[in-house]
Each structure stands twice: as structure tokens, then as C-alpha cells.
């Protein structure tokens, strides 16, 4: 592949590494934040930054690794894009469902705003 392959490898690997950092930051946030509604933010970072980005990064990485045929590269890359788009769809939906259930069941936020919280 030559220079182009090297560049693709470095870009893909860097995205995987940054995804790992995102994941770590999100996990720290989940542990540090005070209540459920603030933890939702951290979880979103973990699902999109920590799962979708590294998958796309590994799809880029596969195109840079030397010694693979084009069909093998596509067999790696296409399922990866499918997984990435699946997580992109389902992660917000799951958060929404749980947040809605929590709100309807009367879970109070950490700092209560008068008039917005249903009992």
C-alpha cells in the first residue's frame, strides 16, 4: 500500500485510541456525576464517542493494513459500518426509554427546579 496505507493506518489507529480515551472519560463521568439525569450525558459520550468512533476508525485501519485483498477489506469494513450505524440508532433510543421511565416514575433531579418536577 505504501505511504497511503501508512497514513490510513495511523489515522485509524489514532481514532481507535481517541475512542478509548472518550470511553475512559465517559466511565469516569458516570462515576463522578451526582444523579441520574446528569449521568445520561456521560453515557451518551460513552456510546457515541466510545463505540461509534472507534468502529469507524477500525474500518479505516483495515484499509491501511498491508497484505489483504480488496474483498477481505470490504468483508471487514461493511459489517463495521453496519454496527456503527446500529449503535447510532439504538443508543439514543435506549437512553430515551430509560430517561422517560425514570421521569414518569418520579425520580427527582439532584437540584430541584420548582414547578418542573412531577411528584
Amino acid at each position: 500500500m505504501g505511504l497511503g496505507g501508512l497514513v490510513l493506518t495511523i489515522i485509524g489507529g489514532a481514532i481507535i485510541f481517541i475512542g478509548g480515551l472518550f470511553d475512559l472519560v465517559a466511565a469516569l463521568g458516570v462515576n463522578k456525576f451526582p444523579d441520574f439525569y446528569t449521568r445520561l450525558h456521560a453515557v451518551t459520550i460513552g456510546a457515541i464517542g466510545g463505540a461509534v468512533y472507534p468502529i469507524i476508525g477500525s474500518a479505516i485501519l483495515v484499509f491501511g493494513v498491508p497484505g489483504l485483498s480488496l474483498s477481505a477489506r470490504l468483508s471487514f469494513a461493511l459489517p463495521m459500518l453496519v454496527i456503527a450505524s446500529l449503535i447510532l440508532i439504538t443508543a439514543p433510543t435506549g437512553s430515551h426509554a430509560v430517561a422517560r421511565a425514570a421521569y414518569r416514575s418520579g425520580l427527582k433531579p439532584y437540584r430541584r427546579i420548582p414547578g418542573e418536577v412531577k411528584k
Binding site: 475512542g19 470511553d23 465517559a26 458516570v30 441520574f36 449521568r39 445520561l40 453515557v43 460513552g46 456510546a47 466510545g50 463505540a51 461509534v52 472507534p54 468502529i55 477500525s58 463495521m80 454496527i83 449503535i87 443508543a91 435506549g94 437512553s95 430509560v98
Partner: peptide
């Protein structure tokens, strides 16, 4: 929600 995020990240880790 934290186990849910764990599942997504395990999926990425498997990839």
C-alpha cells in the same frame, strides 16, 4: 444506563 453503555462499548471492543 451504565450497563447499557457497557454493552455498546463491548460491541466496539469486539470489533
Amino acid at each position: 444506563i451504565s450497563i447499557d453503555a457497557l454493552c455498546y462499548d463491548v460491541s466496539a471492543f469486539m470489533v
